[in-house]
Simulated assay, not measured.
Amino acid sequence: MLLSKLLLLPGAVASSVTIYMHSVPTTSTPQTPVVPSPIPLAQIDYDADKSTGTVTSFTPPHGSYASDHLLRIGIHDSASGSWRGIVTSAASFADEYKKKFVVHVDEKGEVYHVGFGTSAKADSSGVDVEVEVVRRGAGAKPVLNKPIVLNAEGKLADKAEEKTFFQKYWWMIALFLLVQFVAGGKE
């Protein structure tokens, strides 16, 4: 394990996280979960600065579970009993799938969430478990309007006064009357 840290992270400080698995009681087995307590599923060493990680140990779930049985995968806080992770079916750990852990880290490099996904094996490269480290990005910034302009008294500037119909269209009325006057004189 020490050798893998040295090869993975030369000159960097490596961090480690243990990902746990726990059975989710279903309506068919509400009282007796297949996995009675959280057990370690994987140990992952990662470098948040380089967004790299490796699986140092992985123990897929074995036992008497059906493929549709739900398993909780994530970080378990034993003091508060809280979970941060996802729920997946036991079928996700079948041999025909490639597994991928997504470790979400904050600005300090500490894990705040763990994701898990599977995909079909495209080749027999021997890599069954991958790790992706994702840093939390900055959120969207609000687009603000132009600043509020105050007058000399410190109050909002009055809006421009709305013009009346006659103020807007006086020239059209004058043109209409002129045309009527010129056309009316020829009769």
Results as ranks from 00 to 15, higher is better:
G74S: 02
I75A: 06
A91L: 06
S119E: 06
S82L: 12
V133W: 06
R135D: 14
A140T: 12
S78I: 01
G117F: 04
N145L: 10
G85A: 04
E130L: 08
A120S: 15
S82H: 11
V111I: 12
G137T: 14
K155D: 11
E130M: 05
A94F: 14
G139I: 08
S80H: 11
E96F: 14
Y97G: 01
A157E: 15
T118D: 01
Y97K: 15
T88M: 07
D158I: 02
V129W: 10
S80T: 12
G139Q: 04
L144M: 15
K100V: 00
I75T: 00
H104P: 02
G137D: 03
A160Y: 07
D95K: 02
S80F: 01
A152D: 15
K98V: 15
K159E: 11
V111D: 07
V133Q: 00
N151G: 05
A138Y: 12
R135P: 07
E107V: 13
I148A: 13
S125P: 02
V134G: 10
I148C: 09
V127F: 07
D95Y: 02
G115N: 05
A122C: 01
V103I: 15
A94C: 13
A160E: 14
V105P: 03
H113S: 11
V103D: 03
R136P: 01
V103Q: 00
D123P: 02
V149L: 05
L156R: 10
H76W: 06
S78V: 06
K108V: 09
N151W: 12
R84N: 12
G137V: 14
E110H: 01
S89D: 04
A120H: 07
A157M: 09
G139C: 09
L150W: 08
K155I: 00
V133M: 06
T118V: 13
G109S: 01
A79V: 07
